[in-house]
């Protein structure tokens, strides 16, 4: 499933990042790589998704969040 499908408080792991090198570089430099475990904090309609990973609260805009394949753990 996609990051945008996660429920708040649900924990997950990044499975795959879909996008060009530019996108991958941008998203990995802030700490999101394949295999990274995270905790979903908020996922509200029309708002960026809030996740907590690598000790950081990160907001990911929805179009980009849809390119992040995740699995619940």
């Amino acid at each position: 499933m996609k990051l945008t499908d996660m429920r708040p408080e649900q924990e997950g792991r990044v499975r795959k990042l879909e996008g060009d090198a530019h996108f991958i570089s941008r998203i990995t430099s802030i700490g999101i790589t394949e295999g990274t475990e995270f905790q979903t904090i908020r996922n509200d309609r029309k708002m960026p998704v809030l996740v907590y990973l690598r000790e950081t609260l990160i907001a990911v805009n929805r179009p980009d969040a849809e390119r992040i394949e995740v699995e619940a753990v």
């Binding site: 998203i27 809030l50 609260l57 990160i58 907001a59 990911v60 805009n61």
Partner: peptide, 9 residues
């Protein structure tokens, strides 16, 4: 590019 940013503590 859409917002990908940290919310600092």
């Amino acid at each position: 590019s859409g917002m990908i940013m940290e919310l600092p503590p």
